[in-house]
Simulated assay, not measured.
Amino acid sequence: MRLQQIVVDCRDPARLVRFWAALLGGEPVDRAFGWSHVEPHGWPRLSVQPVPEAKAVKNRLHLDVEVDDIEAGAARCAALGGSTVGEVVTDESGSFQVVLDPEGNEFCLVIPARRPSTAPGRT
């Protein structure tokens, strides 16, 4: 099995795909029946499909987007129409900031914890 694409429900796919294309790279593509998608380099296709209802509850699945600088990433998201939720959290896995895309879907900007490098021949 192979992950072919990630699909996000939203009310305005053409607008939302442009947020994700600007954030992750790739060209937004508007398709038939109101769908849109982007194929960022190194990611599966991210498709957005139209639904009539607004988002009402917390996502049960979310994306983690690795960044070099969480504050700079959050500022970029805000400039594109996103917003942050709460503060940056740091634990043994690294640091993350919850962000909402323009339709309110949660995702995280993450900086993984640095793993100590292992010398060749050691485990």
Rank of each mutant, 00 (worst) to 15 (best):
V48G: 04
V29E: 02
L61D: 00
D64C: 15
W35Y: 10
T84Y: 08
S117K: 03
T118G: 03
R114N: 09
W43I: 00
L24G: 00
G25S: 03
A78I: 01
R45D: 09
G25T: 01
C10P: 11
R2L: 11
M1E: 11
V48H: 08
V110N: 12
S95D: 04
N59G: 03
N105T: 12
R115K: 13
E39L: 07
E66Q: 12
G121P: 06
S83T: 10
G73M: 00
I70L: 13
G34R: 11
A75H: 14
L63K: 01
H62V: 09
E103R: 15
V8T: 11
K55H: 05
S95P: 03
L109H: 06
R76I: 03
S95R: 00
A56P: 01
T84L: 02
E53H: 07
V38L: 09
R31V: 15
R31L: 14
R31P: 07
M1D: 13
A21N: 09
E53A: 04
A113F: 00
E39S: 13
K55R: 05
N105G: 04
P50R: 15
P116A: 01
A72Q: 08
E27Y: 08
S47T: 14
N105Q: 13
L16A: 10
A54I: 14
E71D: 05
A113N: 00
G121Q: 06
V38P: 03
Q49H: 13
I70V: 02
I111S: 14
F33R: 15
L100E: 11
Q97Y: 09
F19A: 00
L46V: 03
G86H: 07
V17D: 01
P52A: 01
W43N: 00
I6F: 06
R115L: 10
R45C: 07
D9I: 06
Q49A: 07
P44C: 05
D30L: 14
L46A: 00
K58Q: 06
V48M: 11
R122H: 12
L61C: 06
L80N: 09
G25F: 01
S117N: 11
D9K: 05
L16M: 12
D69E: 02
Q97H: 09
V7I: 13
D101M: 03
D101V: 02
D68T: 03
S47R: 15
V88T: 02
A78P: 10
A32C: 15
A72R: 12
T90Y: 08
S93K: 10
L24D: 04
A14S: 06
I70A: 14
S95Q: 02
G73N: 02
R15K: 15
N105F: 13
A74I: 00
A14I: 12
S117Y: 13
C77F: 01
Q5P: 09
V7G: 01
G94W: 00
A74G: 04
D68K: 07
R114L: 07
P28T: 05
H62I: 11
S36F: 05
D9W: 13
R11Y: 11
V88S: 08
A14T: 13
F19W: 08
Q49W: 14
D101T: 06
D64E: 11
D91S: 05
H41V: 06
L24P: 01
R31C: 12
K58R: 12
T90N: 08
V29M: 03
P13Q: 08
R115C: 07
